[in-house]
């Protein structure tokens, strides 16, 4: 996972997650507060530059991570730009570009790019485990947190199981034709399905043998410059919101 790699190996790894969360929040507010598309684009550019230059995320990786979202944006904007019209006389469907549609495309894509850059800033600089700790401090229901903590840890166990199975199946020509591929994938998923119960049971036994019957607790890392970081982030977030308001 490209995002995971950047989250652990970027220049701002030691910056307090609360600060990075605050800056991203400022970005979200600015993207939604911007009335003019140019304002939202300016916000997006500023956040993207901060991510690339400040946190030192390589440009190529940034683009690769943003591609699926940009693909969605492209095809959705295509359908926003064209208006569908049913002529009642001839019963014919017609597509045509409308000025309102183009205006909407500009607004929506600018806002989406602003919000996307804020999301990318947060996820490319902050590991998920820090984000979960932040959610815990924000009083997220314990039941949801527990699903997140467990599932984050199990994710890599399952990924490895999938990787090993795929290798073994491919070595036996399991993916030679699309028919075989469907069958191999089905066997792989069925095998994984069984592991859900087996691994959940094993985890339960392991937790019980350590007298655990409540929430799973972990040591949280200490961020020494938290106050300074939060002050910088508040200032940065305010600049983003101001920029959005001034340019609108």
């Amino acid at each position: 996972m490209l995002i995971e790699q950047s989250a652990y190996a970027n220049r701002w790894r030691q910056v307090a997650p609360a600060a990075k969360g605050l800056f991203a929040l400022g970005g979200f507010i600015a993207a939604f507060a911007a009335r003019a598309p140019i304002a939202a684009i300016a916000v997006a550019l500023l956040i993207a530059t901060t991510t690339l230059v400040g946190a030192g995320i390589p440009f190529g990786r940034y683009l690769r991570v943003a591609t699926p979202a940009l693909f969605f944006l492209g095809i959705s904007c295509l359908s926003l730009a064209f208006s569908l019209n049913l002529n009642s006389d001839t019963q014919a469907l017609s597509f045509h570009l409308t000025p309102t549609g183009m205006q909407q495309v500009a607004e929506v894509s600018a806002r989406s790019l602003g919000a996307l850059s804020a999301l990318l800033f947060l996820v490319l600089t902050t590991p998920l485990i820090d984000l979960i700790a932040m959610l815990r401090r924000l009083k997220t229901p314990e039941a949801l947190l527990e699903i997140m903590v467990l599932s984050y840890r199990m994710l890599f166990v399952f990924s490895e199981a999938v990787h090993d199975t795929l290798t073994a199946q491919s070595a036996r020509l399991g993916y030679a034709t699309s028919r075989l591929a469907l069958r191999s994938l089905g066997d792989l998923a069925a095998n994984l399905t069984l592991q859900v119960w087996q691994r959940a049971h094993a985890l339960h036994v392991a937790a019980q043998s350590r007298n655990n019957d409540g929430p799973l607790r972990f040591l949280e890392p200490v961020f020494t410059n938290k106050r300074r970081d939060v002050a910088f982030a508040t200032a940065g977030g305010s600049v983003l919101v101001l920029l959005a308001v001034v340019l609108s």
Binding site: E146, I147, M148, V149, L150, S151, Y152, R153, M154, L155, V157, F158, S159, V162, S178, A181, L182, L185, L188, A189, L192, T193, Q195, V196, W197, R199, A200, H201, L203, H204, A207
Partner: peptide, 24 residues
């Protein structure tokens, strides 16, 4: 069934990994 208390987390990981598979 207290033995099922780890099930949801494990099931979420399973669903995540499954959704990352490439389907022909």
């Amino acid at each position: 069934n207290p033995e099922q208390r780890m099930l949801l987390g494990v099931a979420a990981a399973f669903t995540f990994v499954l959704s990352a598979l490439k389907l022909p």
